Computed example of a mutant assay.
Amino acid sequence: MNFLPESQRERINCYRVLDDDGGTIYSSRFQEVSKELALKMYSNMVTLQIMDTIFYEAQRQGRISFYLTSNGEEAINIASAAALSAQDIVLPQYREPGVLLWRGFTLQEFANQLFGNKLDYGKGRQMPIHYGSNRLNYFTVSSPIATQLPQAVGAAYSLKMDKKKACAITYFGDGGTSEGDFHAALNFAAVTEAPVIFFCRNNGWAISTPTAEQFRSDGVVTRGQAYGIRSIRVDGNDTLAVYSAVHTAREMAITEGRPILIEAMTYRVGHHSTSDDSTKYRPADEMEHWRTARDPVSRYRKWVQGNGWWCDTQESELRNNVRQELISVQLLQAIQVAERMPKHGLAELFTDVYDQMPSNLREQERSLLDTIKKHSAEYPADVPV
């Protein structure tokens, strides 16, 4: 894979923090990770893997309309979430369900959103995988690329004004750096000195567009320096490296009141989504190499096992237990409950936007209901009005 710098093609034991003038502030070794935290991260990574598999298969069975996985990016999801506090605000893209999983979002809550049922916090108005949780400080996912970045700066600046010991973090892919919102957000953050972490998952592909066709610069970190923002490049498939980088970035963002850019070098093992067939634009052996030789879950397991905290028997028990819980009890039950749960009424399409509904929306509502009544045979009988 040519998009990875030579220094990142093997496991790294430290990471560099680059100052806004391009110089190295310091190189740091990994943060200490306790046995309890290490095993919790590993368990969550395994759970995320299996959850992705089951929901992906549910889409293929026609039970939900759309899904995408985090295959190959489990370390980015779980390790970054573990380095944050519950008070930190998350503005995700669409490939960070593991962050929400770490914060306590239940399998039933995931299923409710995917089916858009009565218990879905988005009231069925969002695409599947557009999760959101006010309780967990996790902004609702929005598919338009990079729109969450300027919003994250505003959220971070509000934390600064309120003198909160917290930061905002926003996730995006390498493709997002080709959007104007990326550049506006970095400049906005630098000027306001907002405590925000820009977390870029450089997985080499913006759907089917490789990074070589997106930019000629040395990755994404140089763009941060150009806007006067400290930048970190880290091996995104190394759980300890990601945890340490985000831990350091958060500390700098809050104590120094400054934005930080993290570029995590990784690879999207799965297809972009259930609407994509990535074998059309990248070789199968490339995908298989990253699925096996560079798998972040397997790499992290070797480290945990090397510390004497894990063994093959525990590995077998964990995977069997997670699969049994998810497949036979929790997840399938969550899917079945979500499927049976009634949908929101169509009238709710027009609520929650204005305090007093304007006349044009009232007219649209009447028109929709009249259309359904006139052509009732064309609509499912259980469509709630």
Rank of each mutant, 00 (worst) to 15 (best):
209 T>F: 13
196 V>Y: 01
191 V>H: 12
206 A>K: 06
210 P>N: 01
209 T>Y: 07
205 W>D: 03
208 S>R: 11
189 A>H: 01
185 A>I: 09
185 A>L: 07
173 G>P: 03
173 G>T: 00
200 C>G: 02
184 A>E: 15
200 C>V: 15
183 H>F: 07
203 N>H: 09
196 V>F: 05
206 A>D: 06
180 G>H: 00
173 G>Y: 00
212 A>L: 00
196 V>W: 05
179 E>Q: 15
186 L>D: 04
185 A>Y: 04
214 Q>N: 00
216 R>Q: 14
178 S>E: 12
174 D>M: 08
210 P>H: 07
215 F>H: 11
189 A>S: 10
202 N>K: 11
217 S>K: 14
203 N>T: 08
178 S>T: 13
205 W>A: 05
202 N>V: 14
201 R>I: 05
181 D>A: 15
208 S>C: 13
186 L>N: 01
202 N>C: 01
183 H>R: 11
195 P>C: 08
181 D>W: 08
187 N>E: 10
194 A>G: 03
176 G>N: 00
215 F>C: 04
181 D>L: 15
219 G>I: 05
202 N>A: 07
202 N>Q: 12
208 S>G: 06
189 A>Q: 01
195 P>I: 08
176 G>C: 03
216 R>Y: 05
214 Q>G: 08
188 F>K: 07
218 D>Q: 13
186 L>H: 01
205 W>Q: 00
189 A>L: 03
187 N>G: 12
219 G>R: 07
207 I>F: 15
204 G>I: 11
207 I>R: 14
200 C>E: 03
174 D>S: 11
217 S>Y: 06
171 Y>W: 13
210 P>Q: 00
191 V>C: 14
215 F>W: 08
177 T>W: 03
206 A>E: 05
207 I>T: 15
199 F>M: 13
191 V>L: 15
219 G>F: 07
175 G>V: 01
205 W>E: 10
204 G>K: 11
174 D>C: 09
195 P>G: 02
172 F>A: 00
191 V>T: 14
213 E>D: 15
206 A>C: 14
171 Y>F: 11
185 A>P: 00
194 A>W: 02
203 N>A: 11
171 Y>K: 05
196 V>D: 03
204 G>E: 07
172 F>D: 02
179 E>C: 14
179 E>M: 15
200 C>Q: 05
193 E>Q: 14
174 D>L: 09
216 R>D: 15
189 A>F: 02
201 R>Q: 15
209 T>I: 15
201 R>F: 07
180 G>W: 00
180 G>L: 03
184 A>K: 06
214 Q>A: 09
206 A>R: 08
197 I>H: 01
213 E>T: 04
189 A>T: 03
175 G>W: 02
184 A>H: 11
199 F>K: 04
184 A>Q: 14
188 F>A: 12
219 G>L: 08
215 F>V: 07
192 T>P: 04
182 F>D: 03
190 A>N: 11
178 S>R: 00
174 D>F: 05
205 W>F: 10
183 H>S: 11
182 F>A: 12
211 T>G: 05
180 G>Q: 06
214 Q>W: 04
213 E>N: 12
193 E>A: 10
175 G>P: 02
210 P>S: 07
188 F>T: 05
210 P>D: 06
181 D>C: 14
192 T>R: 10
204 G>W: 10
172 F>K: 02
193 E>I: 01
194 A>C: 06
198 F>W: 13
185 A>K: 09
215 F>K: 04
192 T>G: 08
199 F>V: 06
205 W>M: 12
